[in-house]
Design a protein around this nucleic acid. Structure first.
Lengths: 338, 338
DNA sequence: CTCCTTTGCTAAACCGGTTTGATTAAAACC
DNA sequence: GGTTTTAATCAAACCGGTTTAGCAAAGGAG
């Protein structure tokens, strides 16, 4: 029935005041070395840890970070990004005594509501801003709420928050270069929704890389990152004449569905159509043909973002950071143009 | 610079004591109807909400539920279960003012540590117990920590916690029946790890369904739910003579990888080999051939589990609940045996 | 040797709610 | 009409920490 010890018990055992225990524990100056020793020993003996709840109230901190995800669940389930990102984040949080509060919402309204509630209830000290959108309204919302944040890559609006970047454009450019090097001249793109910065950005990278290779602008079909959307976009692109001989997809899910759609139209991959994906999901290596795709250090991204956000909420000045760019993994779904 | 109003401000405006405000707000008896009105009006006028932090400290509640996931990140990223389950959970939590604390850990030790920390820091009022294992040590751990929990399906050890069940065996049995009905007699199984209850359970269901169909026990290969594992298990099964003419997989990821592995061995699916999956992931419909698989209401499972856990931490007696069983979705990866 | 500054510590206020015990006024009883 | 319940309310204690203000002793400067 041992009730949990409080700071008063520790103070009594160490023969000091509660304030001194607090000071000693938090490594503040103004505590004698021997006293500090005594306090820590007493705390250890009683197996005492400060109550998170009391600390939260007194220090006005939640010791928690938030992540609000606005995506349809079935898409979330097929996307390797968030689980890996979260695993990276947690690897840092665990060490620094913070927790992650996750909010999965189904609409933009619920998303705003989510941030508002997290802020109002003081449930988190800061949030990760992922899936940046064009003129993302969340930047202003968070600034207004006074909630610190870290963005994944730089938003296209002025942002007071540090950004942790990972150049995904490099991966798309590498894919286009790879295809151009194989002799392809009609290289299409199945894009993600243009209102997503990474959707639009990868499309821009594809366009730029085509130009850089001296190729004419290719056809683009905008999809929604879903398998069904990727298949439909593929059918649309392949119906045109002359047909593209290669398609660069904005994610693996669409690429794999596209692969299947192309074959259903009687095209052989990679002989008649080369295909590249993006994400390097678990299945990429295990479909036929194995998918040439783009890989990046998502776990590391989580680590860096978490570190940055923790430093930020600790009041440090946090500079922008950048991870190694995404890079191409060549497998079997790309071959020389015929 | 509007500082947030406190209960004292509301009390002053309503002309009552702080205690009365608290009583009125929480719908406790012993507050006059008119007074209650006045208090609520004052609260509304000041746009006051009780501070979660102060409530947490005073009421010794976290107003949060926890989910600890112990899976390799790349597997998590390919599995449609958790995102959907979490979305279901959140749809309930949001309404009842609770949040979800997510912990993704990479080892069993970290998992235990995770539960211990959540309990010790009072970060959550209860947890979801997913991915049950054989003789799951977490049951006892949580009982010892005094942390309420809800399990997904019944553990195989005595458990003081309510279970929210979803019969996944039914789906496997339906798959076997379907294959037997198509004339298959050598139906193999690629199982998940046997220490997982659902891994062992699906294997048992497969075995039972074979017996029920009057078929001899088929070959089983145990894998790890990963694509690579599924592919390896498939190669192993297909190397045997006589070769199985159908394989029932414990999840879609292994099934899709198996599909690819079979084709790499020169087998045509479904002509020479029928294949069934489990999960009905986003890609199942978009691979070639479209995967016959098992689907279940994972979102609803999250809803029910969250409801049960909230009721439980509110002190209610929570009976076991059950969702509609998993059911077979027939697509193109199964065909009559030749 | 006095005066000023540190250093080390304590007591008390504070964070913002909930809950208990006492108090008072109104209603019910005999 | 006097007494006992009952209902409504308040003041104060409490949850368990952090932080500020203040004080005593020790060290340093003049």
């Amino acid at each position: 029935m041992g009730k949990r010890p409080t700071i008063a018990d520790v103070a009594r055992l160490a023969g000091v005041s509660r304030g001194t225990v607090s000071f000693a524990l938090n490594g503040r100056p103004g505590v004698g070395a021997d006293t500090r020793e005594r306090v820590l020993a007493a705390a250890a003996e009683l197996d005492w840890t400060p109550s998170r709840r009391a600390r939260s109230l007194a220090a006005s901190r939640a010791f928690a970070l938030g992540l609000v995800i606005a995506r349809p669940p079935q898409l979330l389930g097929a996307d390797p990004f968030f689980p890996t990102f979260i695993a990276g984040v947690e690897s840092v949080l665990a060490e620094r005594g913070h927790i992650l509060v996750l909010q999965v919402v189904l609409s933009a309204a619920a998303e705003t509501e989510g941030y508002r509630n997290l802020a109002r209830d003081g449930r988190v000290d800061g949030v990760f801003l992922t899936d940046l959108r064009h003129a993302d309204p969340r930047i202003e919302l968070l600034a207004e709420l006074g909630l610190p944040a870290v963005t994944l890559n730089r938003p296209d609006v002025p942002s007071p928050f540090p950004a942790v970047g990972l150049d995904d454009h490099a991966g798309v450019e590498a894919a286009v270069r790879h295809l151009a090097g194989l002799g392809h001249t009609r290289i299409a793109h199945v894009a993600g929704p243009a209102h997503f910065l990474h959707g639009a950005g990868r499309a821009a990278a594809w366009r730029a890389a085509l130009a850089a290779a001296g190729l004419p602008p290719g056809p683009l079909a905008e999809a929604d990152f879903s398998a069904a959307g990727g298949a439909a976009a593929t059918r649309e692109l392949l119906a045109a004449r002359p047909r593209p001989t290669a398609i660069v997809y904005a994610n693996d899910l669409m690429a794999i569905a596209g692969l299947t759609a192309a074959r259903a139209m009687g095209l052989s991959v990679p002989d008649e159509l080369s295909v590249t994906g993006f994400d390097d999901c678990e299945l990429a290596e295990h479909v036929h043909p194995p998918l040439t795709t783009v890989t990046m250090d998502v776990f590391g991204w989580g680590v860096r973002a978490a570190t940055a956000l923790l430093d930020l909420v600790d009041g440090a000045a946090v500079p922008d950071a950048a991870l190694p760019p995404a890079r191409l993994v060549v497998r079997g779904s790309t071959a020389p143009a015929r």
